[in-house]
Design a protein around this nucleic acid. Structure first.
Lengths: 160, 160
DNA sequence: CTCTCTGCAAATGATTTGCAGCCTC
DNA sequence: GAGGCTGCAAATCATTTGCAGAGAG
């Protein structure tokens, strides 16, 4: 799918580090590679596990620190869906997405934000606010869970 | 400001409990009162502190449990702005708001979601998703911080 | 009475931090 | 070399949980 921009992002991240006279270490690079290769939100443990699978293990604390750096550099974004831990996502330019979060099964579906962007930037302007990124989540019930619940209600619907 | 709907919400919450044959305890009621009276997002400690100030202290664990119940009942909503703890907000019907979160100073400004709602429900429909609530956040820089930063850049802007 | 809640203290679990040694530049 | 990383283990801290006693219906 998105195999093209991966190396480009990586190169841009390295450049960002060099520009700040920060060392381009193997571990930071590895974390960035895994994040940029992933197509979804990854938890810190996900990242660590993938690195372990690649036979290039990196300490948990280092993964945390590398992800923080990526966020600070603007190449990643942290999400919190209330699971008790964070998820990180590569931030590809112009690839903003919103989320449909099912409160029953926890499934997260994505959708493009394009249609909302005009309105969002208008709102930001009205508040003299410079928005760098948006977060849009719709919380509710996905079609599968709704079907399941409607069945349950029909079955248990009458008292006694 | 919103002194009218407060008692109404409280009464609806009590009814919700009774309907499920759950006891309407003083502690749950107190937590609900504080949450419904607050005009902003309250942390668990905020709620506990206000209860302490009111001379009706409630144990922290109980506050957590009461807030969970309120969320489950649909009268409250949990937010996570990445501060390391959650904030809870009373969920008044038809009073959905979005947030402008300043990454510099952490200030959170609210704005009404009305203009976005048509589009959001359209998107939900397209995914056969039943949305109960929305979360819209714009992350960036508020006008005050931007002004401050622009000043700093102007001062240090030229190399050498 | 029965069932659920409450409060305390202890447990949990994600994230952070201190520090000695290692690696980039 | 110097300064910033890394890894480990210990520290933090919000949130959760177990359990004995209290309260609502």
């Amino acid at each position: 799918m998105a195999s093209e921009p991966e190396g480009e992002l990586l190169e841009r991240f390295r450049r960002w580090l060099r520009d700040r006279h920060l060392p381009v270490t193997q571990q930071r690079d590895l974390v960035a590679q895994v994040l940029f290769a992933g197509d979804t939100q990854l938890s810190v443990d996900d990242v660590a596990a993938r690195l372990r699978d690649r036979r290039t293990p990196v300490g948990l604390a280092t993964v945390y620190r590398a992800l923080d750096t990526l966020v600070e550099a603007g190449f990643a974004r942290a999400h919190d869906f209330g699971e008790g831990f964070r998820r990180y996502e590569a931030l590809r330019p112009g690839h903003q997405r919103g989320f449909l979060v099912c409160g029953r099964c926890g499934q997260v579906t994505e959708f493009p934000l394009e249609r909302l962007e005009r309105l969002l930037s208008l709102i930001a302007d009205e508040h003299e606010f410079v928005a760098e990124r948006h977060r849009v989540e719709l919380h509710g019930t996905c079609s599968a869970c709704r079907r399941r619940e409607m069945g349950a209600i029909a079955r248990a619907g009458r008292p006694r």
